[in-house]
Write a protein that binds this DNA or RNA. Structure first.
Length: 233
DNA sequence: GCCCAGGTGGGTA
DNA sequence: TACCCACATGGG
């Protein structure tokens, strides 16, 4: 009588197998990626906000500016003027918008959390995610990056690269919307922060190095299991 | 010159 | 919901 249920369970198991197979191929090809760069959870959060639509190299420059100016702490960044902060953030682009976003995070931290970052990050995952998403400038990808890389909790991070790579592999939702993609990974993989951490980093590495907008299928480690690689349009 | 880079928020149909 | 645009610097 549970034929349908059984069937969907089997399908889910196959999806899970495929996702793990992709992971192992990526890991075999590229090795451990060591994400997220950053010396502290606070630095990871600042990086997560600053890297929105920006190259990581430029994020490093901006963080170096903040450190050189002696304002790289929640308290200092909360108190510095928007204008001064913007000047230090110039290298990341969108520096006014990002100064606003960074201070929106710090406003929330001081308003709701008394400036206690560790306490915020210690919240249970669903509540932490909800709190982060309520902050101006923190959308789902940045929220999940903070949860995964700064709080060490298993929230899968989806970005444009993820959609591109898995769309070509013939896996995942047809929609481009964020939540269906996140659910797809969360429901198909064990809730393991170190797995999510490495997987997301490997996807980005693969997209940057091989699965370009015009992909380099002849050098791809996924050739044998990727429908796109076997018959590009 | 042109495209892209580890997105998000606000506005409109 | 589904697009569109602003936000802006740096590198290939």
């Amino acid at each position: 009588m549970n034929r349908k249920l059984t069937r969907s369970t089997v399908m889910a198991a196959k999806t899970s197998e495929k996702l793990l197979a992709v992971f192992h191929r990526l890991y075999a090809r590229y090795g451990p990626q060591g994400w997220w760069p950053g010396e502290s959870p606070f630095e990871m959060i600042v990086g997560a906000i600053l890297t929105q639509a920006a190259a990581w190299r430029n994020v490093e420059r901006a963080i170096a500016n903040l450190k050189a100016a002696g304002v790289f702490s929640p308290q200092d960044l909360h108190q510095i003027s928007r204008e001064d902060l913007g000047r230090l953030l110039r290298p990341v682009g969108y520096f006014n918008a990002k100064a606003h976003k960074l201070q929106a995070f710090l406003d929330a931290l001081y308003r709701d959390g008394h400036g206690d970052l560790a306490r915020l990050l210690a919240l249970p995952l669903p509540e932490l995610r909800e709190r982060l998403l309520a902050i101006h400038g923190i959308g789902p990808e940045t929220a999940d990056a903070i949860i995964l890389y700064a709080a060490g909790k298993p929230s899968f991070v989806v970005d444009a690269y993820t959609r591109r790579v898995f769309h070509r592999l013939g896996l995942g939702p047809t929609s481009d919307a964020y939540e269906p993609w996140r659910s797809f990974f969360m429901e198909s993989l064990p809730a393991d922060a170190s797995l999510f951490n490495e997987y997301h980093a490997l996807i980005d590495r693969h997209a940057k190095e091989t699965c370009w907008r015009v992909p380099l299928c002849d050098r791809c480690c996924m050739r044998e299991i990727c429908p796109y690689g076997q018959s590009p349009p």
